[in-house]
Design a protein around this nucleic acid. Structure first.
Lengths: 150, 150
DNA sequence: CCCTAACACTTGTATATACAATAAAAGTAC
DNA sequence: GTACTTTTATTGTATATACAAGTGTTAGGG
């Protein structure tokens, strides 16, 4: 739907302003969507993101700064996020031997299993998008967004 | 910068998954950017958004549901958001005569003045984007995002 | 070895947010 | 008018987040 209808607005100052709002709005929209899916598994999008990051580096553990660098929202508090996941048994943390300031964080079997359960659900979301846009079109989006942040 | 570098990730499952993450990430990125600008004026992006919505409808007042419909993030609590802005004297609220469940919310002179002060700063952000992307390119983004949400 | 600075993380605190429960007014049916 | 439903907004509560201050660890200079 056009952003104008979505936000019941008649016009924007220019295409640039509209793009700014459009990207933020669509990002929120996608995040709400995934959070609906994740809710039944008691995960926030951020927690899910951290788990996927850990799976990506598995079996090599990551420390907190590594995770923070890879997070979608760098502002959120990695310590407490990780602690939440640890309490659920989805990851382990131990002090790093060579540098005791660091912690080594690793996804557990249980975490892997949970992600495996979630994979098909997330594939569904991708399929939803593929109903709306062709591969060429999403490629274009990716290129333009990458360019925007350059 | 490419999302892969930004998130220090080697690859994504496919372009669809990358687009999903890219839009969310870039949306966050833009929101953080504007929130930096707004911070010196003690406004959150959401509060700023509400003020702009009210300016857009001025001099006609809006009630809470109207505002909620036009907000970027529909989940946030409009009542408390509006109350914060009222305390700052940026808007007024009064019970609606014809339907006393509703409230009429209107931007004040002070609110208008604040927005006027912020306009040039926000124009700067637009200009930043215009250094990276042509009008044709942002038009493409807008079309594709609108299509994605359709 | 001592002193200072840099690093990696944690904690405190104030604010924001999500979601559910509640309240009050208006509309509808009888 | 009374009972029921719907609309519109508010409040309670648990959780999340931002930002600054604090803690313990390591590194470097003299």
């Amino acid at each position: 739907m056009k952003l104008e209808e979505e936000l019941k607005q008649t016009r924007f100052k220019d295409e640039y302003q509209k793009a700014m709002l459009n990207i933020i709005f669509t990002g929120n929209w996608l995040e709400v969507w995934t959070s609906q899916i994740l809710k039944q598994y008691d995960l926030s999008p951020q927690q899910f993101n951290v788990l996927r990051i850990l799976r990506g580096s598995s079996p090599r553990p990551l420390n907190l700064l590594d995770i923070q660098e890879r997070m979608m929202d760098r502002m959120s508090n990695a310590t407490r996020l990780v602690e939440k996941l640890r309490q659920k048994g989805l990851l382990t943390r131990k002090q790093c031997d060579s540098n005791r300031r660091k912690v080594e964080i690793e996804i557990t079997e249980k975490g892997q299993a949970l992600l495996k359960e979630l994979d098909p659900l997330m594939d569904e979301s991708d399929k939803e998008i593929s109903k709306k846009l062709t591969v060429a079109e999403v490629k274009t989006i990716n290129e333009l967004l990458d360019k925007l942040r350059s």
